[in-house]
Every structure is written in structure tokens, then in C-alpha cells.
Amino acid sequence: MKDDSTLYVGLDVHKDSITVAYAIGMSEVELLGKVGTTEAEVDRLCKRLQSKAGRVSVVYEAGPCGYGLHRNLVAKGLDCMMCAPSLIPRKPGERVKTDRRDAIKLVRSLRAGDLSAVHVPTVEDEAFRDLARAWSAAREDLKQARQRLKSFLLSHGVHYLGRANWGPAHRRWLSTFSFDSTWQQLAFNEHRRTIEDRLAQCERLEVALREAVVDWRFFPAVLALQTMRGIQFTSAVGLVSELGDLSRFEHPRQLMAWIGVTPSEHSSGAKRRQGSITKTGNSYARKLLVESAWSYRHPARVSIDIQRRHEGIPKAIIDRAWDAQLRLCRRYRKLVARGKSAHVAVIAVARELVGFIWDIGRLGMTLAVARSA
């Protein structure tokens, strides 16, 4: 029978089953058992939970099953949270892990307020992110295919005298080279064909991204980020698709921590010890960020390519991007002059770059809304 208490529910979700545990208010945690993952079985579960209390709060770990269950539960009126698995409290020395224990632990942690929620994107944002990740995966496949071909040539003592950077001269040399053995030539041709297929795939996906991004709600943020040095179209699309709505971060320090570029710390008493960056959160966004930060090791300037990306962008955004370039280039030089290694300096620049991305991305969305109003 319903009452005014809150029903806390923990779900241990797998592909074919969901283990359910619950507690009403501060009472003991009870195990409800296992249910299926079909829509009909989830509907029956929701009705059973809603019959026990007036307010139902559900939590489960983010995992490979996506956001479908979360959206389904929210649509049925349940308060649902996906939590970060790496931030769930764990007892030292705990050696037994079962679905039942995980579900009960989630109930207790939810009731204590010890869980960190994972941002759930909209259906449209998730679809665009999938397209951006497909392009990233294709680029990674292309990189691996090129490395396999280089390794194949090296293992047979074949050396290219120039720079093997896949430029026009390097590609012409590959197209004219041949092995004496028919079998080796066949393997060589297959390696080259794989590279050509991956190149074609990357081109198709990039064209699709350029066509789709125009209708995406974060298109103004993508345009605004491209005014910055080191952030071209693909980098801007990758960053915005992974970061999502920048307005959900009240301060740039929150975004820095989310990407994982803040220093780790182990302090006690009067001692304060900071170490390397935490590397928590989104690894792909962090990778794009660090790649962009390397461009600030050179003196500040506005190249022809950056000028082209400035066309049609409000002056306030362009001025902010120039401020970022001046500050970050100066920051890199100062750190190197103090004896810091290039890698340490670039990570420090990347951390400050996050603040400018947060500011310029939000500014781009704000100005776009003001124009449309």
C-alpha cells in the first residue's frame, strides 16, 4: 500500500536480466529477485514498485546497455539515476561480488547520497554522438591499417628514403613498389586496399557529419569552438558531442574535473601532495583536448585557416579566442622556461584550455539564441 515514504531501488542490469533490491525509507534492504529486460517485464516491475510507495527512486550503473532503460523508467514517472561505476563506494578488502550484493549496495549508497550521476543525453544528441564516434573509430582503424603496412614493409627490409608521412610522394612510391613473390605481393595489395577502404570510409563519415551538424542544436557551439587555435571541424564536433550541453557545468573547474585534467592529490595534515592528472571521465574528449593544446607551443598568430573559420562569427567570440591564444602560448613558454618538460607544459595548457572552451562554447550558444529571438 502506498504511503509518503520513498522507495529506494537498486538495479543490477545485464543484457538479459535485472536483479532488483529495494528499501522503503530507512528500513532494511530486501531482495525482490530477477526480472527480464523486455518492455512488458519492465512495465510489470514499475507497477510493483509504484504500488509500494508514493515516490520511487531508482539507480543502476552506467554500462554497455545504453540509456534505454533510464528513458523507459523516467517515462513511467520514476525518479531514475544512472551512476558512475568507478565512483561507487567500495569497502577495502571486499572480495565477494554478486548481482544480489551489487543491487543491495546500490540501494544503500543511493539512500546515503553517495552516488555520482552520469549525464544522460537526449535521443538526438546520442544519435549525433554515435555518428561522431563512428568517424573517430574509422580514423583509428585507418591509423592501425597504415601501421600494419609499415610493419609489413619493415619486416621485409623495405625502406622508404623520404618521409613516410602518407603524403603524395609516399603514396606514389607505394603504388609503384612490388614484391618478387606473388604471395607477398598479394598480401601487400591487401594492406593497401584496406587503407583505401578506410580512407573512403572516413571521407563518407566526414561528409555525413558536415551535413548533419547544421541541423544539430549545438551547431553554434561547434562554430564558436572552431575560432580557437588547434580546434578544427572534426575536433570541435568530437568535443561538443562528448561534452554535451556546457551549461550543465556551473564553473569551468567542474568541466576540468569531468574531463580528468585536474591534478590528483593525496594530502594529510600540513602536507599537500599533488600528482599527475586524474584521467577520469571521458577519455576521447581528453585526447582531443591534449591534441589541440599542442598547437599552443608556437607563438600566437592567426593563420589563414583560422581566418577562414572566423568568417561570419561574432566579434565577441573571435576576441575571446584571441585572448585564449595569447594567454595559453605565454603560459607554455613560461612553464618551459621554468624547466618543465614539454608534456607537463602541454597538460597544464590543456587544463586552462578547458576553461576557454567552456566560456566560448556557452557564449556561442547564447549569441545564437539572442540572434534567433
Results as ranks from 00 to 15, higher is better:
E196M: 05
E196Q: 12
R198F: 09
L199Q: 14
A200I: 02
A200L: 03
Q201V: 06
E203M: 09
E203Q: 10
E206Q: 10
A208R: 15
E211N: 13
E211S: 12
V213A: 12
V213I: 11
V214K: 15
V214I: 14
W216Q: 14
R217Y: 03
R217M: 04
F218G: 02
F218M: 13
F218A: 12
F219N: 15
F219K: 11
P220Y: 10
P220A: 11
A221Y: 06
V222I: 15
L223F: 01
L225A: 11
L225H: 10
Q226R: 15
Q226K: 14
M228D: 04
Q232G: 15
F233N: 05
S235L: 01
A236K: 05
V237F: 08
G238S: 14
V240G: 06
L243Y: 03
L243H: 03
G244P: 06
L246C: 04
F249M: 00
F249W: 03
E250V: 04
P252F: 05
Q254I: 03
Q254R: 13
A257N: 08
W258R: 11
W258I: 05
I259Y: 04
G260Q: 05
T262R: 02
P263C: 06
S264R: 14
H266T: 09
S267T: 08
A270K: 15
R273I: 15
R273A: 09
R273C: 09
Q274N: 08
I277D: 00
T278S: 14
T278M: 02
T280V: 11
S283N: 03
Y284H: 14
L288F: 00
L288C: 00
S292L: 04
A293V: 05
W294M: 04
W294K: 04
S295T: 15
Y296P: 03
R297K: 15
P299G: 07
P299C: 02
A300V: 03
R301H: 10
D305A: 13
D305Q: 13
I306T: 09
Q307M: 10
Q307E: 14
R309I: 07
E311A: 13
E311Y: 04
E311W: 01
E311L: 12
G312C: 08
G312I: 08
G312H: 09
I313H: 02
P314H: 10
K315R: 15
K315M: 11
I317L: 08
I317F: 03
A324K: 08
A324F: 06
Q325S: 13
Q325N: 10
L328D: 05
C329K: 01
